[in-house]
Nucleic acid binder design. Structure first.
Lengths: 226, 226
DNA sequence: GATAATGTTCATCATTTCTTCATTTTTGCA
DNA sequence: TGCAAAAATGAAGAAATGATGAACATTATC
């Protein structure tokens, strides 16, 4: 999961960055609204953390631009304490949640998880054909038996499950799972290799892998069990 | 997807033209309001980019004429920065979005995509005579039974369905489906071959192929089911 | 710092898909 | 009706894709 933080307080930025990284999110940062928007146009994020108080263009303006462009990525606004006016304005503009500074990291993480879960059942457990993936405890089981997935394998499976019924291109997969650290020009077949290993661990019967290949495009976990 | 740009700044016009072409849109341009309207009467577009500041007839007048004629094509207005008055006037006249100059190309593309997505039924499923093509999951079925299309077949069918009711030339087809990698001078009959294979898979009864041939031009999927 | 675990690159192979080409069929029109 | 251009077709070689095993590199863990 790829998160963009737009905030001008360097200290907070770095702290958030390291906490979110340790929670296995892929993180990018922007120090002001302009830079934030630039990133939003050029990349795909699963969540945006947006400070209202920003130099130059403020957070509400940034949000309004994002929504005007039809980008529906969930946005979690960070506001100064008690600034109810901003809160209301933000929600009207299409913010998905807000959090008053200072906030506890635990609360922030809880809200992030809630937003990332949205659109799904609301349960932190994603499932396909006997395989259950718990996004909170990060445990994966097949028919009750625990499986040990590596970080990348977990992230790939999680992303595919989040996008069930949607064919996901290799490029998108790389953007979300590898974030900034992938160079679209020097693409090798590392995604294929991880998929191979993942499939092997999931161990579905021949020709019935939960993860379908879409030739010339990418991968897909179907919406309905067959 | 067919886009009309009405703008008098030649430089901007050419830049937009080349960027949109490279994104596989079909683009036509007009240098003033008169010429723009002329094109609007004679062709069907999926989106119109309209500069407010035009010599002679201004953009708002053009927009008003278009809407007065009952043409509902989405219009994205281009305005000078901060010209709120124009913005409001434009939205009242039926503009669908506006963008202040100067703008980043990424932003423009994001808004275009947003508008084009709207224009359709909203559903990601395109259909013709029992064949359903899901643009999101990239699955295709005929009467409920899954069909396996190759990348090119899928792209061709998708493009024809997106342009239902419009005859599509071989050249346009090649531009959109093959993109950069096609050389208009070394044209062979590869499109015909793919169409043959596609038709065979869609397997419509004799003489009733969903895909009609337009002699000397290209192909067509009719607007209404017969 | 050694060892293990994980991630990435590389070469190979089977398979699918794309393109070309030669030939036949259809179509529009003189 | 007959002709020429365009389109459809079948077959075959060329190109591409994805799966895979294994080597190599990097990172984490003790």
């Amino acid at each position: 999961m790829n998160i963009l933080i737009i905030d001008d307080e360097r200290e907070l930025l770095e702290k958030l960055n390291s906490v979110l990284m340790s929670e296995h999110y892929t993180v990018e940062t922007a120090g002001d609204g302009r830079e934030g928007l630039e990133k939003v146009w050029n990349d795909t994020y699963d969540l945006i953390l947006l400070d209202i108080m920003l130099p130059g263009m403020n957070g509400l303006e940034v949000l309004s631009e994002i929504r005007a462009a039809g980008i529906l990525t969930p946005v979690l606004m960070l506001t100064a304490k008690g600034d109810i006016k901003d809160k209301i304005a933000g929600l009207n503009l299409g913010a998905d949640d807000y959090l008053a500074k200072p906030f506890s990291l635990g609360e922030l993480l809880a809200r992030i998880r809630a937003l990332l879960r949205r659109g799904n059942t609301g349960s932190p457990v994603l499932e396909v054909g006997g395989v259950r993936l718990n996004t909170v405890s990060r445990e994966v089981t097949k028919d009750g038996e625990p499986l040990t997935l590596t970080t990348k394998e977990f992230a790939l499976l999680e992303f595919l499950l989040h996008n069930r019924g949607r064919a996901v291109s290799r490029f998108t997969l790389a953007e979300h799972v590898w974030g900034d650290n992938f160079d679209p020009f020097r693409m090798s077949n590392f995604i294929d290799v991880h998929m191979k290993n993942l499939r092997k661990k999931l161990n579905f019967p021949e020709q019935e892998s939960a993860i379908k290949s879409i030739r010339g495009f990418g991968y897909l976990i179907e919406k309905e069990e067959r």
